[in-house]
């Protein structure tokens, strides 16, 4: 009964409605199958590409401004085998990942320390809440002055931007640890460290992974922004900027942005997979009902975005 509630017919009278409802039920049939869903998604991708192609060729935007989808795809394919571009991507990815890694190494122990000292915990949260609204890209000019070398600028900024989501999620995760589990372990004579290692960390694990996922997408934004502003030897942002200043080939720039999007999808997908995989990152108890959810930047309930 419920499953039909949304696509229920009866919106309009006559045979038109009947035909429409038949078309709907066919689409619903397709939507009920895995391959059908993939097909619909492919239709959407092709449709979007076609729409961009047509709009670009129709000349609604003057000449060069909007590149046709076909040429963007062609450029993107060429870039995939272009060593120069791959080198740029590698510079970006290594700065991104090393900044992220450093942030994990700093934020998780800091979170564990702060979170297990009850008085420090609230005070630390207040500091974090105050520092968090500062947009990390605002630090770019300062970081350029202080660090001078572009790759140090990028690494440090990624690390700074990634620090907060990981730290906050670790703190939230620790607040949520089941006190009964902790007390049980205490009763069996485990020390503070033992409890931390065996209960607190595993049960905060899913929160930490969510924090890392958010940090990864913020980090990607920051690393590209820093490259755009700080320049340097190489990197995706530097590539885009050079293309822009060297006459500005829109198809090349959009293709570059698309590759950045692929990086984003890969990071999100990979970490999202770790998050959903039961037991991998979270040997601790699963989500208890009524337990606060990890803080996601979109406020979305589930990591995959719209997926349910």
């Amino acid at each position: 009964m419920k499953r039909d509630a949304r696509s229920a017919p009866g919106l309009g009278p006559g045979s038109g409605a009947r035909a429409r409802s038949r078309a709907r039920s066919r689409a619903a049939w397709l939507a009920g199958r895995g391959w059908g869903r993939a097909l619909l998604g492919a239709v959407g991708v092709c449709g979007a590409l076609l729409a961009v192609e047509l709009v670009a060729r129709s000349g609604v935007f003057d000449g060069q401004a909007l590149p046709p989808a076909s040429s963007v795809l062609a450029r993107a394919a060429e870039m995939a085998v272009d060593e120069g571009f791959l080198g740029d991507v590698w510079v970006t990815v290594s700065a991104w990942l090393s900044g992220l890694g450093l942030a994990v190494l700093l934020a998780v122990p800091a979170g564990l320390l702060l979170g297990s000292l009850p008085r420090l915990d609230t005070a630390a949260l207040a500091v974090v809440e105050l520092a968090r609204p500062i947009p990390s890209v605002a630090l770019i000019p300062l970081a350029i002055l202080v660090f001078v070398e572009p790759d140090r600028v990028e690494r440090s900024l990624v690390c700074y931007a990634a620090l907060w989501p990981i730290l906050l999620n670790t703190l939230y995760g620790l607040r949520d640890v089941d006190p009964v589990a902790k007390e049980t372990l205490r009763a069996f004579g485990f020390g503070v460290l033992g409890v931390l290692w065996r209960v607190s960390l595993p049960s905060a694990g899913p929160f930490v992974v969510t924090g890392v996922r958010i940090a990864a997408s913020v980090g990607l934004i920051v690393v590209v922004s820093a490259e755009l502003r700080a320049g340097g030897e190489g990197g995706l942002g530097v590539y885009l900027l050079e293309t822009q200043s060297g006459g500005g080939r829109p198809d090349l720039m959009v293709a570059g942005a698309c590759w950045a999007g692929v990086l984003g999808v890969a990071a999100n997908g990979g970490l999202g997979w770790v998050e959903r995989k039961p037991g991998a990152a979270a040997p601790g108890p699963p989500h208890r009902p009524g337990r606060p959810r990890p803080q996601t930047p979109d406020g979305l309930k589930e990591p995959g975005g719209l997926k349910r």
Partner: peptide, 27 residues
């Protein structure tokens, strides 16, 4: 249906770091 058709496009659009498009917007 609209959701299933557009989801991949939207997920990709969301994953593109917005600053990477700034050079393009500048042009």
């Amino acid at each position: 249906i609209a959701y299933l058709v557009l989801d991949p496009v939207l997920q990709f659009g969301r994953a593109v770091p917005p600053p990477t498009l700034i050079p393009f917007f500048m042009v």
